[in-house]
Write a protein that binds this DNA or RNA. Structure first.
Lengths: 339, 339
DNA sequence: AATTAGCACTCTGATATCTCGAGTGCTAAT
DNA sequence: ATTAGCACTCGAGATATCAGAGTGCTAATT
């Protein structure tokens, strides 16, 4: 793999990313000043195909990068730090808004990333269920209506309005909540349900029913919570590779399935790299085998708590996407550091 | 418009709704036992076309209902109360879950309706901004973190976690919130911002900054809130009229725009009818001129507070959709009556 | 030895042409 | 008023044709 091959491969992929048309030797020679003839390029391209970096849609078409070609491009060839000053200041600006819930930042991030890159964006929120209980409070809003407040070590506060029979006495409830908080401080949320429901764990028999409901609610917590936020799914429709309804249906159908997306992104982000690229069949999900997914992680107190991600055709503008995600995930971590 | 014409029109539309193929006289005569020959049907169909109820895609194709034809079908011909016992019990079941926030019901409703009908469903949530303030509370969660609780006459409770400078004294904040609640009780939320920001409205100079931020937050409230919940948008992809990407893009693009959808549904639901059908060009939104929209309203304390809606091809299964929405909106109203 | 010009060959996509069949409208018979 | 019969229309799909872009190979050139 000499320098010239690299050069040709790089230019070819750039061109294909921009044009979506198979690239031929003639076009390449004419359009870019390579100082060699189309015949030479032809030979090099034949070599690159043999090496597995390019493929031909059919005999007499130009070449198209293979998954392996994209991989090489992403790892070795593409320009780094491909980002404008405008983008940087925009992201900084967006995260400067103070006094916001985490959910707000998550939505904001997804929307912004999708808009900046032109691809759908998915953001995985910090997992509530793995957070540890800090405090639980009960407030009486009106007769028959209670508000439960749960704060965790991740600083996340979740709350639910709960209606209960009006005749339920809530006098000692505050005290009970306090006691409860003390007892279960530091327990992961997902363990709470069982603890709460375990009749031996506390002796306040007359509150059993209420705590039971609370436990049930917590059990469903992660079902109801938006763990994955999806923004701009329709942007894929603008790309010629998605003129085919069935393909669109496959991909968007996958994106709609929060659990599946969450699983994919979490797996992707186990890597040590701050930004990871998954190309075509590298993904475990068949539905997106002709897409690429770029994923970055973000942290709270130097623990990875979530992912920011972009999905698009394999013919994706990797340089810009990677740079954008690097920036955004960094700024998001910074914005969440108070949490 | 004699009985036979009605019969033919009804059957033709039923057939077209089921098959998506233009219906010819021959097919009609063969498939259904009308007791008359295809020639007679042909004549009747020609009349129906002249009357504006049918149209021909091209000279030698079968007939297809016009907007007017669908309208007549919906108003006069279609079977009423087209619903199964299964559906009824399913809906009842779904709304039996107690102890839920309004937002939960809204999501639940949208999902369920989309699944039951096979079309995308949109649900407009009760407008927070028009609700009147009942009470505002401030809680200190941790140093530097406050929780604002706002309850309204609609029983809706909204809350936001707000981080403030740690050094801010929150001692008198509870009292201030109480005083505030007393003073502004019954004021619509959307007026609160100005009131709060008006320096004459209260004299607690040292809290000005905090209330100011609170006001700013309230101003953005409705921007951040999900006022419209969309479920199952991709279900339209299964219908042959949406094989065309551009059409899909138009329609889904519209559905993504919460404000536009909200406006449309609110306008639609000004009607006195409990369920309203908007067919094709009857809609003010050009992007959905080849769709139909069915909308029902739901109430809290016999005030209309929101809409439940379904969108699909004009060739929609109106009978089932109307019946489903009737049922769902009724049950949703019932479920929300405690609010 | 590497590069390039030249050329025959291949394949696709666009365009044109043809055919078939479903459906119509009209007329004349019932 | 209904229906059988028939000529006519139009589109969808199949088939044929053609131009163009691209390739691989060979022989000439540097």
């Amino acid at each position: 793999m000499d320098a010239r091959k690299k050069r040709i491969l790089g230019i070819l992929i750039d061109d294909y990313i921009a044009s979506a048309e198979p690239v031929g030797s003639r076009t390449l020679a004419k359009k870019y000043d390579l100082g060699i003839s189309s015949a030479t390029i032809r030979n090099e391209m034949a070599d690159l195909e043999e090496l597995g970096y390019l493929e031909q849609p059919h005999t007499s078409a130009g070449r198209v990068p293979s998954d392996r070609g994209y991989r090489y491009y992403v790892d070795e060839l593409m320009p780094k730090r491909y980002i404008t000053n405008d983008a940087v200041s925009r992201v900084r600006m967006a995260f400067q808004a103070p006094m916001r819930e985490i959910a707000w930042f998550i939505h904001q991030t997804a929307r912004m990333v999708s808009e900046m890159t032109g691809y759908p964006s998915m953001v995985v929120a910090p997992p509530v269920l793995e957070a540890r209980l800090a405090e639980i409070r009960v407030l009486r809003l009106q007769p028959g209506t209670l508000l439960f407040l749960v704060s965790t070590d991740a600083g996340v506060v979740e709350n639910r309005v709960v209606s209960v029979p009006e005749e339920l006495s809530v006098d000692g409830l505050g005290a009970l909540a306090q006691e409860f908080s003390r007892e279960f401080h530091g327990i992961p949320i997902h363990e709470l349900k069982d603890r709460i429901l375990d009749p031996l764990a506390h002796d306040a028999e007359r509150y059993r029913g209420l705590w039971g409901t609370l436990g049930g609610w917590m059990a469903e917590w992660n079902l109801y919570e938006d763990r994955v936020t999806l923004a701009g799914p329709l942007s894929i429709l603008q790309y010629p590779e998605f003129r085919d309804i069935d393909k669109v249906q496959r991909v968007l159908g996958f994106l709609e399935r929060e659990d599946a997306v969450e699983e994919l992104l979490k797996a992707a982000a186990s890597s040590t790299e701050s930004v990871q690229v998954m190309i075509g069949q590298e993904s475990s999900v068949e539905a997106i085998w002709d897409c690429s997914v770029v994923t970055a992680t973000y942290q709270v107190r130097s623990h990875v708590v979530g992912q920011v991600s972009v999905i698009g055709p394999k013919r994706m503008h990797y340089a810009q996407v990677v740079a954008t995600l690097e920036l955004v995930s960094e700024e998001l971590s910074r914005a969440l550091k108070w949490a």
